[in-house]
């Protein structure tokens, strides 16, 4: 582990230096707050504020990509666009989400040949949160405003300077590459970090999370889903903004005897999600679709991956056009388990 500090006035130089050998993706100002974008001018990078409106999942798992191209005679595997990349300023919840996505895309020994090359080429330099966003609840789901999972370097904003802490070998190499700009962190810096983390944790709301998997199974036919289903509009905002939602659709697009096979994000909230070719749809109502989203995250993923697929970033809450709040649903499930 390497702890170094960087004067904020040298941040642009730092990003420029590391950006010489790799693509830089970082938060930039956007009409919806901040958003991750490929950056060629480091002066545009924004560290202030809370987490971005949409997650950086797209860096590793793009909204859509071509898997194959084909014509009447042959099928060719499309090579994923892979570039050496530094994702700078991802929040600890987002970095942790990568660690969860890794489990999906390597599940059962099957390595996704499109996701993994990107993951391998992407260094994640995360940024600890001093101020939580309006719907953040990372500490309730096993995360922390200074969580380390999924990142190579964790950055702390100490006001006039940043403390950068390497978490992996790749992270250490990255910091050494820019060592001309940094200084060794002092004990006082490290103390300041501890204090900032403790303060940020204090500001985060605690949400009751349903832990009893049997009780969650028992909630399948609970009445609570009915009203939630009526409220849920059936759009894809929650899943598309979510850093851990990973469901996709595969579509063939053909034209004049040639075509391509496209993988694109999909969501259980869409009525088409489970529509069979026969016309049968096992999830006929929005209740069932909304329930699927919650139980997939908090029950099925725990069964399959030993961990709930929620990092508490709150984006599904801030972005929901129907005003639905996952935290409230989780608390209802907890109280339902108690009364069962």
């Amino acid at each position: 582990m390497l702890d170094v500090t960087l004067e904020k006035s040298k941040l642009q130089e730092f990003l420029k230096l590391l950006g010489q050998k790799r693509r830089l993706i970082a938060p930039v100002a956007d009409r919806m707050g901040t958003i991750f974008s490929e950056v060629s001018d480091p002066s545009l990078v924004r560290l202030e504020g809370v987490n971005t409106n949409l997650s950086p999942k797209e860096v590793l798992f793009p909204q859509w990509e071509v898997l194959y191209t084909f014509n009447a005679d042959q099928v060719n595997k499309a090579e994923p666009t892979v570039q050496e990349t530094m994702l700078f300023g991802a929040r600890p919840c987002d970095a942790r989400a990568f660690e969860l996505l890794d489990r999906v895309f390597t599940w059962d020994g099957i390595n996704d040949p499109y996701y993994l090359p990107r993951r391998e080429k992407t260094s994640v330099v995360s940024l600890a949160c001093n101020v939580p966003g309006e719907a953040c609840f990372c500490t309730s789901v096993g995360g922390s405003p200074a969580g380390e999972f999924g990142a190579d370097v964790l950055t702390f904003d100490l006001g006039k300077k940043l403390l950068l802490r390497s978490l992996t070998e790749r992270g250490e190499k990255l910091l050494k590459e820019a060592s001309t700009l940094t200084e060794e962190a002092t004990e006082a810096d490290k103390q300041a970090v501890k204090q900032a983390v403790a303060e940020a944790e204090k500001r985060l709301e605690q949400v009751a999370i349903p832990e009893d998997l049997e009780a969650l199974k028992g909630s399948f036919d609970a009445e609570i889903w009915e009203e939630l289903g009526l409220k849920c509009l059936g759009c894809g905002v929650c899943a598309y903004a979510c850093p851990t939602c990973h469901c996709f659709d595969i579509t063939d697009e053909t034209r004049k005897g040639a075509g391509r096979r496209v993988r694109s994000w999909d969501t259980c909230a869409f009525s088409l999600f489970t529509l069979h070719g026969s016309g049968h749809n096992p999830r006929t109502t929005q209740d069932a679709r909304y329930r699927q989203r919650v139980l997939h995250k908090f029950l099925y993923c725990r069964e399959n991956f030993d961990e709930a697929f929620c990092v508490g970033c709150g984006r599904c809450i801030t972005n929901c056009p129907a005003g639905l709040d996952l935290r409230a649903v989780l608390e209802r499930l907890v109280s339902l388990a108690k009364t069962a």
Binding site: Q63, L233, G236, E253, F270, L272, P321
Partner: peptide, 30 residues
């Protein structure tokens, strides 16, 4: 981002099958 929140929040968009998702014919890609 093709989330269709605009469509779902719109009272006028009540079609059982939206042209955006029809497959025969397929009007537009994903």
């Amino acid at each position: 981002i093709r989330c269709y929140a605009c469509r779902e929040a719109c009272p006028n968009c009540y079609c059982e099958e939206c042209f955006a998702e029809e497959t025969t014919p397929k009007w537009l890609g994903v």
